[in-house]
Amino acid sequence: MSQLKNATRLSVASRAIAAVLGGYALSATATAALSVGLPMSRMDAVITASVLSFLIYSVAVIWAFACATTARAWAGIAIPTLLCGALVWLLGPAS
């Protein structure tokens, strides 16, 4: 019983970190990637990306707590974050 409780606690703590810190990392990299990647003027791209960033954050938080397993919760946030990071690195500042 207490073991189960500890496992749950650990899972909640892990998901909370994935949601709060991982979610911020994901929305930050996604905002950066959209800002350099969207086919608009750079100011419009920045505004579009930044307005959407909080929606991305909320989806990440919901995802972190809705997933069946903690591992999937982490993977669903870490992989897109890395992809977006790679995109920013590839595209660079569009100036």
């Binding site: 950066a32 800002s35 920045v46 930044s50 307005v51 960033s53 909080f54 920013v88 500042p93």
Partner: peptide, 22 residues
């Protein structure tokens, strides 16, 4: 709630600006 975040967008999410404007 959402607009409250938007009003502080530049403080909370400056990464789009930083990426696009170097």
């Amino acid at each position: 709630t959402y607009s409250g975040l938007l009003l502080f967008m530049v403080m909370l999410m400056p990464w789009g600006i930083d990426a696009a404007y170097d």
